[in-house]
Each structure stands twice: as C-alpha cells, then as structure tokens.
Design a protein around this nucleic acid. Structure first.
Lengths: 339, 339
DNA sequence: TATATTTGCTTAATCGATTAAGCAAATATA
DNA sequence: TATATTTGCTTAATCGATTAAGCAAATATA
C-alpha cells in the first residue's frame, strides 16, 4: 500500500524537460551544466523527495561504497568501540559499513566473508576468530583484488595490512610491573600460540622472565580460548599446584574475571596473596572488586587507522601498495588487583 | 594488480555457446532448461569461479536482500545476542544484515536510517536511541513502504510491528519479590518516561506499590539515561535522603552496577541494608559481588521473532498486514543482591 | 497424417544511474 | 568577417542479471 512509486532521475528529467543525463550531471555538480539547471534539478529533486538508487550507481560505477567489517563478537567494548571509530572515518568518506560477527567460529567467519563478497563490498576490515587456522578464505579476498585490512587478531603469513598493538612489549611491561611488586612466580593464562597476538604475548612474557632472572616453569604457562569459563578452570588448576604462583597474567579480561571469581571464592587475597592482570581494559575491569589491572588497547585509534588504511588502498589503487603494518604501543592501567 | 576481470554470466554463456539468459535460468533451476545445460552451466560456473553480481540482480529485481538493523549500542550482551539470533534467521532466508549503532544519539540514528535507505535495504529492524523523541525519521521509512520492525525500545504512536518483553509485569514481579523480602521503601531509578518501555516500568512499579499498600514517594522515583554514571549519581542522591530506601530497583544493569559501586564504597551491606535489582541480565550481573538480581529479556527469542516478523512482511506484501505486537514474559533471575 | 502441446532455448527490453561521444548555439579570438 | 573555443546540453551505450515474449524443433494427441 504505502509503497509509492520510486522517484528516479527520469521523473526529474520529465518535470524539467531535460535529459536524465543532464539531471545526473547536475546532481554531481558537473561543470558543464549551467547554474540555473543545477538549481532547478535540485529543487525538483527535493520537491519529489528523490533518493538516488544506490544499486544502480554502484552497478554502473563498479563500486558499492560498502565496507565489510568482521569481528569475533560485538559485545565487547573493544570491538564495539573500534567499529564506532571506523564508522566515523568511513562515513565521512562516503562509505557505509556492514558488520558481521563470526562468534569465534571458523565456519561462521567463512560464511561472513562469502556474504560480504556477495554483497559486493569495496573492502573488508577484519579481526580473526579464535578458531581460525586455515587462511584460504582470506586468500580468496586477496585473489579477488578486494582490499583487506586486519586489526587486533591478524596473521603474518597473510601479508596484508595490519593494525594492532605491541603485544610483545605489553607482556614485558606487565612482567616488569609484577616483578617490581615483588612477584617471583608469575603464571600466564594465554591464548593459543597459533594466533599471532597470543603467541607474541607468550614470547614477551617468557623473554621478560628471562630478563628478570626468573625461571621458566612450563606448568605456569597455559593456552586456552580465554573465555570467562576458561579463566575459572585454569585458575582452579593453578591453585591445585604444589607451588602456587604469586601472580597471574591473563591475556583477556574475561578470563581474568573468571580467575578473579575463583580467587575470591577461595578467599585468596588479591593482590596480597596473588596479583592479577588482565588484557583489553574492558569497562568491567574497573567495576569489580578488586578492580583489575589491565592493558588499554587504544580501540579508537585502531579503528581510525584501520579505516584510513582501507581508504588509502582505494584512493591509489593503481600503485602497487606498500604493506602497512601499524603497531601501536599499549598502556598498562594499574588497578587494585596488582597494586 | 591481483584485480582479475570479474566473471559474468556472459563469460559462461560464451564458453558454452548459449545465451546469457539461458545461463541465468540454468543457475536458478528454471524448469524450461534441460538438465544437460544446467549441469554444464554449473560446471563452468565453478571452473571460472563465478560469483553473481549482487548489485545487478538486486537492481533488476528491485530487492537488495539486505536488512538494516539499528541498535543503540552493540557492546551490550542483550543487543549483541539479539543481532546474532536475527542473523541466523535472516541468513537462512537469504538475507544479510547491515548493523549500525546509534550510540543513543538522535542525530546518529537519523543518519543511520538515511544510510540504510540509501543502501536500498529491504527492511529495517530497530531499537530506538535514548535521545529519540521526534519520530519523523521513522515515519519516513513507513512512507517509503519499507517494512519496519521495532524491538525492545519501541514506540506505540508509530503503529508498527513490535517485539519486546512485558515491562509492566516485570516491574510488578520485582516489587512483589522485594516486598516478600520485607522491603518497605522501594526506590526506582528508571529511564525517561518518554520512552515507552521505561514509562511502562515506572507504571508497573507504581501500581505494584499501590497493590501492596505501600506509599508512593516521588523522591524515590528518578528518571535518567541509565548509564553507569547515572546509577552512581542517583544512588548517591538516594543515600543523602533523610529517609533512605531499603531497596532500589534500577531499570538497567549498567546503572544498577553504578549504584552497587556506591553502596559498596559506603560500606552499606547489600542485600541486608539495601536490596538491589537491575534489568537486562547482562553477564556481569552474575560476576560482581554481590551478584545482582536482574530481569532476563529473552534476547534470542526477541531476535528470532523480530526477524520472522520482517520475513512475514516481505512474503505477503500484497495483503494489508495486520499489526504484530509481540510481548514476551520476562523472567526474574534472583541473585545475592536481593536475596 | 494434421494439429496441438511441450521443450529448450534466443531475443530484446528492463532495472536506474553514469559517462563517452557528439552536436548546436553562444561566445571568443584572429 | 571567418574560424576556434566554450557552454550546455542530448544521444546512446553501459554496468550484469533477469524476464516477458517468442520461435523452432521435438513430441504428443486426435
């Protein structure tokens, strides 16, 4: 019912007795169209409430002005704020974004990519799912010549643009902080080594222990998916060790929260008996008791830079692009759980 | 460089010496195309790695198979899980979704709608921003004949399909629970009355007080944006009252968390001195101490039903649609903060 | 055997916007 | 005054896929 006939440039053309081509040019301020005609076109367009058909222009121009964004989950403050920042930059440049969540599933990630390619996005900005090991679906994007920018969870082998923080250094800063607080047995509940960022955090942690002349104890290094439940389970596991750690560095705030719950439930004083540090600076880290020391990841910056990197790609697509790997310094936000 | 020429149905047609029309029909299993041709077309399509140009078919069919979703913020578990559930249903029906966040801003919400209309979405599923009072931008969607479904934060005046929970009843259940625990002075930190769901929560609260023969005290009814900071501020305000409340029902978990922080900081025992109840059942409610009693909103159900409602719309668009208002019963999840 | 129907395609138009090519009128330059 | 340039448009093709209309060959029916 309410489905009124769409207004097209043809309607405007008829109204003014000019050609549709002239209307199109007038709308785009072509210098070869007179001011008088331009104003008339714009007036009529407004009167008729003309909305350009994006599909038609996208088809003709071979450009959809859509950017696909793939994140593992939107319900973390980090990703939500990265997206917000990307959107600001991309909207300004005339792009809209399509957000999809992989839910940390490899299969869902592949589907997301298919959907985005099918929708003819002009580029994809992605952060990889935890499960992802096989990278062939990302190769597919590259082979189609569609700009791909990874952020946070990226992969070196892919040889694509990347924006993230310095995970190795972050671990070094964390260990240094804990050592200064007098900790001698620092455990690490990390992610899987197959994911580059988690591997880097583990390497940074190990190298920092060596630097501070602390022994490397394999029983204190744990790999997991870093969910809250993983944090609980691994913390319980650590508490059962003969020689308990006096500090735990967890590579995700969610897992750190799980660990904190277990510590609280066992009446183990944090930070006096065990110091705890998370990663990601999710808002809840400052809300729980004790508040959790964590690493701020500059989400706004990451979003902005990832978007700008994409824009660079499309602006001079003729040039063979030089690879952009942008690594930002992270910042340790010290709170009660380690102080 | 890697930008290979796109494969079109024309390429497949040339390869097989048939017309592009035949290829198109073969791909869609048209009964008038022979099995032999169909198989040949599909084989060549695979060989050439053909990907249909979605823009072209969308333009021709006047249907983009995209659904726009507008949420105030993605970084809440409620919205993220609603979206996930919608996506599942819509993907199955051949639709992709475009997510945009309004960040609770009226201006951003208008922009989101413009972007979605410009992208030629086939429908919009939205939850309104806190700031939104003027509804003309939603009228615009309706006037274009594009299906609109609201969820959670909707508006009666708009006369569109809606999916949400029973806010009035939720308040009744909450008050009943608190009364049973012996509370006599129950405060309510609510949202703004202009938003229907918050108005209903206030009405439910007031009517429940009357039902249990408790006096209505206007100083115990507060309207705010329900951010964490609002929760803190309003709790501090309540603590300064001569006659303090013995229970606080907060219409959002975030604000409830703020309130809890203030109570903890002031060494006021929760639940013994003040009982606290939130709304939304965000994961952190079970993570803080004491854990916060809250209302589960059936996010998965809401997402599924909203998506199905949209699908109903597009399936029989000829029929004058009857309005669907679906109100689900909410569930009180009792935790330490009120028990 | 003659006509009707079905099968398997092709032809051509279409969805709206864009753009290369071109043309006539107006204006500038020699 | 004769030619060159600029201005302001129009014409027609195009982006790919879809679909109504139609046609010839194959098959079915009378």
């Amino acid at each position: 019912m309410g489905n009124k006939k769409r207004i097209t440039i043809k309607d405007i053309a008829n109204e003014l007795n000019i050609s549709p081509a002239a209307v199109s040019k007038a709308m785009h301020n072509d210098s070869r169209i007179s001011e008088k005609t331009k104003q008339a076109v714009k007036r009529v367009a407004k009167e008729l409430d003309y909305q350009p058909n994006h599909l038609a222009s996208a088809l003709r121009k071979g450009k959809s002005n859509l950017v696909g964004v793939i994140v593992p989950k939107t319900n973390s403050n980090f990703f939500s704020s990265v997206i917000e920042s990307m959107e600001t930059v991309l909207n300004k440049a005339g792009y809209s974004i399509i957000i999809t969540q992989s839910n940390e599933s490899f299969e869902k990630e592949c589907k997301s990519i298919d959907t985005l390619l099918f929708t003819q996005v002009d580029g994809i900005i992605a952060s990889m799912a935890n499960e992802t090991v096989d990278l062939s679906h990302y190769e597919k994007i590259k082979s189609k010549g569609i700009p791909l920018v990874l952020f946070d969870r990226g992969e070196n082998d892919l040889n694509v643009d990347y924006v993230g923080i310095n995970d190795y250094d972050s671990s070094q800063i964390i260990v240094k902080h804990l050592v200064e607080k007098g900790c001698k047995r620092i455990a690490h509940i990390g992610g899987f080594r197959r994911t580059r960022i988690f591997n880097n955090r583990i390497k940074g942690y190990v190298d920092a222990l060596i630097k501070h002349n602390l022994p490397i104890d394999d029983s204190l290094i744990i790999e997991s998916s870093l969910t809250l439940e993983d944090g609980r389970r691994e913390m319980e596991h650590l508490l059962k060790l003969e020689n308990r750690p006096d500090a735990v560095y967890v590579a995700s705030d969610y897992a750190a929260l799980g660990a904190l719950q277990v510590l609280n439930e066992n009446n183990i004083n944090v930070p006096d008996s065990v110091r705890l540090i998370g990663f990601g600076n999710e808002p809840f880290t400052s809300l729980v008791s004790p508040s959790i020391t964590s690493v701020a990841q500059h989400s706004t910056e990451i979003g902005r830079i990832a978007a700008e990197t994409f824009l660079k790609h499309v602006s001079n697509d003729v040039l063979k692009q030089s690879l952009n790997k942008i690594i930002l310094d992270a910042e340790l936000i010290v709170r009660d759980s380690s102080n």
